[in-house]
């Protein structure tokens, strides 16, 4: 895997998210606790709501448009909903956020 430095952990508010622009669309990077981050596709599969603007609770996010809830680790919708969002490897190294470069490839977005 090759990793891309996308910023510092403290650039993301605790229980918040920021986006990363890529050619294959926006990726949302969530900070669920002091040193816990997840990266997923930013668009909700329901009506395209920006997930990075949702309320982050535990390791989940609630879409700001219609309250669909996703598990950030698996990408699975919770409850009765069945949709899935893409998840991408991201890790923290000495405070820097490293995103898997494979997240940028168009084939990944198409999948």
């Amino acid at each position: 895997m090759s990793w891309i430095d996308i910023g510092h952990i403290d650039d993301i508010p605790l229980r918040g998210a920021r986006t990363v622009k890529t050619h294959s669309g926006c990726i949302a990077v969530f900070r669920t606790s002091d040193a816990e981050v997840f990266a997923t596709g930013n668009a909700c599969p329901h009506k395209g709501g920006p997930l990075s603007e949702g309320i982050v609770h535990g390791t989940r996010v609630t879409c700001p448009l219609h309250n669909m809830v996703f598990d950030l680790a698996t990408g699975q919708a919770q409850g009765a909903d069945t949709a899935t969002i893409a998840t991408y490897p991201v890790r923290i190294e000495e405070g820097r956020l490293l995103l898997d470069a494979a997240a940028l490839s168009p084939s990944q977005a198409a999948a």
Partner: peptide, 15 residues
Amino acid sequence: RPAWQPLADLTLEAA
């Protein structure tokens, strides 16, 4: 203001 922008723009790197 930076907090209102994307964290990173990787469209250049990807190209």
